[in-house]
Write a protein that binds this DNA or RNA. Structure first.
Lengths: 152, 152
DNA sequence: ACCCAAGACTGGAATAAATCAAGTTTAGGA
DNA sequence: TCCTAAACTTGATTTATTCCAGTCTTGGGT
């Protein structure tokens, strides 16, 4: 139940509060959602939670390493509870859908940059850009229509 | 001179205007700058250019493939004129500095995701996170001081 | 060389995401 | 049970970006 989430909070020496449990539960059940969606999900349980509380909680959880913040270019911040491994993401260019991708090269992927310019690199983040199955299907349909009836 | 930039614009069938030439010149001389900096650089030459014009120009140039837009998580949009190859970037966590990194794996880097969830992938974007030489040097200094005099 | 229409630019307002600030409530150790 | 630091509420503010209406300019056509 929620006791698992409670344990995780205590392990990170964070206070156990209803907003925090609600945020963790929301992210566990809905990976890759943005802050607005988290707020909506949390308010389904606790209607009185302020948006600021959610922002605070997300920051505290991120700092504590309980959630991971991802932010593909041009999108708002999204969060997930899968933090143990350093996995990557595929992002749909048209609808913004995100899916997890395990790293192809075992543990540290392309972590060896060809020329690091003296930077001390501690993480290689990979974002795969493309089209999700749903949008691909839609595109195929509309393309088929284009030939016969021009643009919609 | 600027004629090179003019040629690039015409090749993309874009009108040649002073704001566009100024934006291209600014990005050629200062890679990886954000929109605000572009505005400042452009206004050094053309003081009357509106911020909206710069936003419009950056979008037009990006759509035409003359500049590339990059946006590391938590940062504002940045632009560069190096578009021919699909190179990557190192980003400094503390100061936000960005440097180019050629892909270690030749042309298409880690473009083969282990499980693509049915996505049609067309690009693999890699962001290396770390500490730039300057910030690394600063950290080393302040860490050395910590032992003797606590926090500043 | 001149004209003019599409496209580009100006000025100003509006939106969205995120943060700041001041005061109130609450978790959890003493 | 009490108390304090941490967490939360309310509401304003900042920052990056976009929208909109009107004006100017580029460059193809005459």
């Amino acid at each position: 139940m929620t006791s698992d989430l409670e344990v995780r909070l205590r392990a990170a020496s964070l206070r156990v509060t209803r907003p925090r449990l609600a945020v963790l539960a929301a992210l566990r059940d809905h990976p890759h959602v943005d802050t607005d969606t988290v707020i909506a999900l949390v308010r389904a349980d606790l209607p009185a939670v302020s948006h600021q509380a959610v922002y605070d909680v997300l920051r505290a959880l991120t700092d504590a390493g309980l959630v991971r913040r991802i932010q593909p270019a041009g999108a708002t911040a999204r969060y997930e509870t899968r933090v143990a491994d350093n996995h990557h993401h595929v992002v749909c260019r048209s609808c913004g859908a995100i899916a997890d991708v395990d790293c192809a090269h075992g543990q540290a992927p392309c972590l060896t940059a060809s020329n690091d310019h003296g930077f001390v690199i501690d993480e290689a983040e990979v974002v795969y850009w493309g089209t999700c199955p749903d949008c691909a299907a839609l595109n195929k349909t509309s393309q088929a229509n284009e030939g016969s009836e021009g643009k919609a």
